[in-house]
Every structure is written in C-alpha cells, then in structure tokens.
Design a protein around this nucleic acid. Structure first.
Lengths: 208, 208
DNA sequence: GTCTATACAGCGATAGAC
DNA sequence: GTCTATCGCTGTATAGAC
C-alpha cells in the first residue's frame, strides 16, 4: 500500500511536534504511524530522508489554505493580522514548532537544511508576492527590496514562534508590540509626498 | 578540581555548537572536555542539568562584552549596526546557533525552557534598557511598549540566525533589507511634530 | 509489502576500585 | 575526585519468513 508511506509521513510530523527533534526516531515515528519500525527503512531508506520528505509535505499542506487569504489582504496591517491568525491557528493545532524543529535539526545536517530551506520558501515566496503588491507605490518600496524583506519577516516569525515556546507571555507582548508598531507603516503611507521627500533626502545622505 | 566542572561546561557548549542538540550526549560532551563520561553525572547529576547550567554560563559570557558597547549606541541605526557586528562575530566564532539549539531543544523540555528563557533575558533586558534610552522623546515610544519591542527584536534576531543556517544568502539579504529599513525610523524621528500629530490621530482612529 | 528477529553501536546512569 | 566496568535501554539498519 502507498497508504503506509503517508502514514509514516504523518507519523513523523506528529512525533516531531509532540516530542521534538531529539525525541524523533524510526521507532517513535513507526509507533505514531501504527506500523512496524522496519518499514521506515523499506520506504525511505533512512530516518533523515523520511524527515526531509515529511518537512516538505507538511509545509505544503500548511501553506495551501493560506495562499487565498494572503491574496485578499489589502494593507500591511491586515497582513500582520493574518499573521497573528496564522500564528493562533498553528499554535492551537500544535504545529507551531514543527518547522522550527526542522530548522534547528537542519543546522547540523546539510540535506535537511536544503529541504527546510525549500519548505520555508513556500512561505517566503507567497509573502514576497503579497509584499510586492502591498508596497507598490509606497515610499517604503523605494528603500528596501521585497525579497529581503520577505525573508526578514518569515525569519522573525519563526523566531517569535520559538521564543513563545520558552516564554509564552513574552511572546504575546512581542506580538502586541509589533501590532501597535504596524500603525507606523500606515502613517508613512498616509504622509505620502512629505515622507517620500524626507526619505529620499535621507537616503542620499546615508548612502553617500 | 573545580576545573573539571568548567571543562564540562565548555565541552557542552562546544559539542552543541559542532554537533547540534541531537548529537549532544554525556559521552560526546565528555570527549570534548577530555574527561571521563561518568563525571557528567558526578558533577551535574544528569545531562539536561549540565546543559541548563552551560546555557546560562555561555550566554552570560557572550552578553558581558556587549553591554558596554550597547551603552554607547546613539541611534536605532547604530543599534542595528551593533547587531550586525554581534551577528558577524558570533558567526565567525561559530556560536551562532548555540542559543538557537537550546531554544529548539527547550520546546520539549520545560526545565531547559526555563533556563533558556533566563539566558535570553540577559539579552532582552540589555536591549530593553537601550531601547528605552534611544526612544525617549521619540514618537515611536508613544505607540509601542519597549518591553514588547525588545522581545520582538531579540526573537527576530534568533530567527534570522536560524534562517541563515539553512540559507546563508537569504539571511544576508534579509539583514540588508533590515538595514535599509532602519532609515525609516530615523525619518520618523526627524519629522518630529508633524509625524507625532499624524501618529496620534492615527492611534485615536485605530484604537477606537 | 509487511512482519519478526536480530546485528551492533551508542545512550544514561550506577557501582565500586583507586 | 576520577577512573573502569557494567547494567538495561534505545538507536539505526539488515536478513529473512510470510
């Protein structure tokens, strides 16, 4: 059955979610999937290879339902609100730390790093498209590149997820601060010509 | 000798740096420290307890030399520059992922989470003091709380470190984007009264 | 394709010699 | 305080029955 492959992938995600990267092994994954331990090696050859495929599959499944919602976002503030929604849903579902665990495990494993990077880019690319659309015509677009900004936002989001894992209240206050700070970008947009002139002057000075 | 304790703590950091949290055990730590494996249990009782103490000790040693430099920072832009310096030095020394590895391991271990949180707060508290000083009198201070902002910045920094581990070029472009975006905060400060009025109006509308 | 059985290495932790 | 030796357990991975 091709069903066993899927059960192992699901089991891998479930295990990494509930026991972290340190508690994930062929035995614990197989137990979660309800199949025999040897099947991990029959179907995937090794544990890291199973994790690699599970990382991509899981992220794809997570990103998909958010793509449509990102297209409907009309401002940076709304994007941040969607981010908080995403954050809340993922946390409730217990998925928050999955990608973060992969990220940590990937630091010492080049192959897992490549897979994690690819998975992250599913988020980053969507974010980049949204930022491009939102920032078109804004003075902010003139002083930053959206590819870099998208990576910053995605990385910061991951950092916040991890931080909340060790300090839930601190993570909450960080998100609140970001939310209030988002007003700032709206003000920039509203000021329009004045801000634009000031920004350009500033840029000339700082890059000279 | 009390020296063995220190060697084990150093060995723990070295191991977690070079082999990640998944490759860290009493045996690998003892090998790095050049002492017998049983001494881990004699001196610390368990591996997690050694990691807990190593996490705090290592962070303290890292934070100390930066405290004076943070006091000399005069603007948000300079603070960001110091952040990039810190980033570069840590990366060159190979320390970048150490705290991140603790953070990931802590997601599934409450005791390690408490220690990691305490270690992170060594950074956060220093950051908070600096932000308080820099933002005094700025309109930005009116629409955000520095405690939350300090946590956001620290969390984002960690996220960037982890991200750079799986995608070095992407991490670089993210840092570049941040750098260019820092000009924005200076513009806000420069606009002074005008921006302040706009921000207040905006705040009234958005919180109503 | 799935199972049992088994190999061998590495793990945390303890006992006891020195 | 440090070492050797050892326990029992869990890890990856393979061989072979079904």
């Amino acid at each position: 059955m091709a069903d066993t492959r899927q059960r192992l992938i699901d089991g891998a995600i479930e295990t990494i979610r509930e026991r972290g990267i340190t508690g994930t092994s062929a035995r614990t994954i197989a137990a979660a999937a309800g199949v025999n331990q040897a099947l991990v090696f029959y179907h995937f050859g090794s544990v890291p290879e199973l994790l690699r495929q599970a990382c991509l599959a899981a992220t794809e499944a997570r990103v998909a339902p958010f793509l449509a919602r990102m297209d409907q976002v009309g401002s940076l503030r709304e994007l941040l609100a969607l981010g908080r929604e995403l954050h809340a849903e993922e946390r409730a579902a217990g998925n928050v730390t999955v990608l973060a665990q992969f990220l940590a495990g990937a630091q010492a494993d080049p192959e897992l790093a490549a897979a994690t990077s690819a998975a992250l880019h599913l988020w980053i690319d969507a974010l980049e498209r949204t930022l491009d659309r939102l920032l078109a015509g804004s003075p902010v677009a003139e002083l930053t590149d959206t590819p870099g900004l998208a990576r910053t936002v995605a990385a910061a989001f991951i950092g916040l997820e991890l931080f909340e894992g060790v300090d839930p209240e601190g993570g909450q206050s960080a998100l609140d601060a970001l939310d209030r700070l988002a007003v700032l970008t709206e003000v920039i947009d509203d000021l329009g010509p004045i801000a634009l002139r000031a920004l350009r002057a500033k840029l000339r000075r700082s890059t000279a």
